[in-house]
Every structure is written in structure tokens, then in C-alpha cells.
């Protein structure tokens, strides 16, 4: 280690870990690692998306009927909330880059609030599904058209995909709390803000998943009259 003296004091998060030669190398490794992690996430969600595509093609009418029971205004509102949170997240990274420490905390807190708002709306939507017996399982009922069995498949995928997405949001909110705490102690500087930047990538990825979920689940056959079926 003698020839590789650490740049920062040991224990500080910005300290250079022993396996790296330079801070740049350390940051490059984190960035590549994060992107590879996001690729595994793409493939993970990909399994659910292909299931959706296959069954949407097979049971189009029932899927349209089931999709019509989702609340488009709430979905649109939530999409807006999530896009706002992506902006505040991008601004948090920006504040770290320009070294505005109090702004980092502010934008991270805003991101957390918006994330919580999204989850709150999701709770309202889920509660509505329970009320109408649209939750897959023994008590599932569907009278709004199409084949109930296939509509149940739609709702299985709806809960699977939005549930997994919400789980990612919840995990993200937990990490945000840690980041806010650390940021308030002034840990992140223009020289070292890798955690904020990496978390930003994660948060934007979760946003992208929703960008696809929203039209696929909510806006399916919006132009078709309820229960009619299209093709």
C-alpha cells in the first residue's frame, strides 16, 4: 500500500479504497457497476413485460375491458409526480456537482416527498381494486366484459408489475433517507458525490419502468367503448 497512499482520511466515505489506484478509477468502476446492475434490472422487468405482451395479444378484449377499470386521471397524476421527482433528483445531482450543499438536501427531500406521494396514490388505487374484487385470487370477480379468467390474468400482471415497481420505489425511499442524512452532514462535494449520482441513475431507471407501465396498463384501448373489445 505504500505506493498507493489514500487521498482522503480513512473512514471518510470519499476515502480511496485499497484496490484502486486513483479516485477516477474508483468512480469509473462504480459507474460501470451501477449500469450493469441496471441492465440486470431491465432483464428482470423484461420477464414480466414479455408475459404481458404475450397475454395482451392472446386475450386482447379481456385486457381492454380490465384496463378500462383503471383510473386514468390518477395514473396520469402519478406519472406527472414521478417525472417531477426525476427532475428534482437530477437537480440534486446538479447541486452536488456545483457544490451547493444545502440545495442537495433540499432536492433530495423533494424527491422523497414526491416518491411518497406516488406511493400514496398507489395505495388509493390498490384499495379501490380490493373494494371491487379486482385482486386476483379466490374472491376475484369481474363483470365489466371479456373473460373473467383472462381479466384476472391482466390484474395478476398489473399487480406484479406495479407491485415490483412500487417495491423499487420503497427501497429507493429508504436509500434516499440515508443520502439525506449524509448530505445534511455535508459529505457530498463536487469532488465526491458518487452515491448521489449512482442513486440518481437508479431513481431515473424506476421512472423509465413507469414510463412504459403507464401506457401499457392504463391506456390500453382507451378509444374502444367499455366491454366492446376491439379486433
Amino acid at each position: 500500500m505504500s505506493s498507493h497512499s489514500a487521498h482522503a482520511t480513512a473512514g471518510h466515505p470519499a476515502a480511496l479504497l485499497h484496490q484502486f489506484d486513483t479516485a477516477d478509477q474508483q468512480k469509473d468502476a462504480s459507474t460501470l457497476g451501477m449500469w450493469l446492475f441496471l441492465i440486470t434490472e431491465i432483464m428482470f422487468f423484461g420477464g414480466l413485460f414479455i408475459a404481458y405482451i404475450v397475454y395482451r395479444n392472446a386475450y386482447f378484449d379481456s385486457f381492454v375491458a380490465a384496463s378500462h377499470t383503471l383510473n386514468i386521471p390518477l395514473g396520469t397524476f402519478n406519472t406527472t409526480v414521478l417525472i417531477c421527482s426525476s427532475l428534482t433528483m437530477a437537480m440534486a445531482v446538479h447541486s452536488a456537482q456545483v457544490g451547493n450543499r444545502s440545495r442537495i438536501v433540499l432536492f433530495l427531500v423533494l424527491t422523497l416527498i414526491l416518491g411518497a406521494a406516488f406511493l400514496g396514490v398507489k395505495v388509493i388505487e390498490y384499495a379501490d381494486k380490493f373494494e371491487h374484487h379486482h385482486v386476483p385470487g379466490p374472491s376475484f370477480q369481474f363483470t365489466e366484459g371479456g373473460n373473467p379468467k383472462n381479466a384476472e390474468l391482466f390484474f395478476s400482471l398489473y399487480f406484479g408489475m406495479t407491485g415490483l415497481h412500487a417495491l423499487h420505489m420503497i427501497i429507493g425511499a429508504g436509500i434516499l433517507l440515508v443520502l439525506i442524512f449524509n448530505a445534511s452532514k455535508g459529505w457530498y462535494t463536487p469532488e465526491y458525490y458518487t452515491p448521489v449520482e449512482m442513486f440518481g441513475l437508479y431513481w431515473h431507471f424506476v421512472d423509465i419502468v413507469w414510463i412504459f407501465l403507464f401506457p401499457l396498463l392504463y391506456l390500453l384501448g382507451g378509444h374502444l367503448p367499455p366491454g366492446s373489445g376491439g379486433h
Partner: peptide
């Protein structure tokens, strides 16, 4: 490299979608 990573990720997603749909 980052661009390749992102592109590769979506390309593989397309492999999954395209070859599965090829069957259906």
C-alpha cells in the same frame, strides 16, 4: 462503454421479446 452498456441491455431485452414472439 456506458453507451454500449445501455444499448446492450436493451438489445438483449429485444432478443427476449423478439425470439419469444417469433414463436407466438
Amino acid at each position: 462503454l456506458t453507451k454500449l452498456c445501455v444499448g446492450g441491455g436493451f438489445l438483449w431485452l429485444m432478443f427476449l421479446f423478439a425470439l419469444t414472439m417469433m414463436d407466438y
